[in-house]
Amino acid sequence: MDQAELAAKFRNKDIKAFERIYSDYSDSLFGVIFGIVRDREIAEEVLQDVFFKAWDKAETYSAEKGRLFTWLLNISRNSAIDKTRSKGFKNKNKNSDSSFYVDILETRDKTEIDIDVNYIRSMLGRLKERCVKLIELLYFKGFTQKEVSEELDIPLGTVKTNNRNCISELRKLIQT
């Protein structure tokens, strides 16, 4: 089933298509959400909520808005950020100034979570520091080009090409 067919079936609330989407993307979205909320139980709750929402508004998705994955990624980031702003949410990680991955590896040592440490270590070892940061801002946090250029203090016009080079490196790394 190609993406267009899958999307069409999903829009018509075909449960099989939905299950396929869940198996393709839920790990990834779980990772994105966890990167924002930093708590396994809360991340699970948000993930379920994301797929509930996706199902409820399936008919509002259209390919013109972007990839199914991207659509779900946006819902996930927004839901996770909303969660961190909600009343009951306590940020258990006060030291959020430290680097994203270092912080997450530390969280892992303190709590019972099962992230892919080998992958993260090899990625941190082989990607340039700037790339790691760029990918974090654009994909985990959904920063716009302008926000990225301000955060990293690089010219706006270079965000696109820098990121392209970083993703090319990432693709090589994942293939090996």
């Binding site: 869940y22 990834s28 779980f30 966890f34 993930l47 099962d114 992230i115 892919d116 994909y139 993703i167």
Partner: peptide, 18 residues
């Protein structure tokens, strides 16, 4: 590109999904 990003972000999934 999507494949790489899906793989990359999945590394932070804190265990198996529900």
């Amino acid at each position: 590109i999507e494949k790489a990003i899906v793989r990359h972000t999945a590394a932070l999934a804190p265990g198996t999904v529900p």
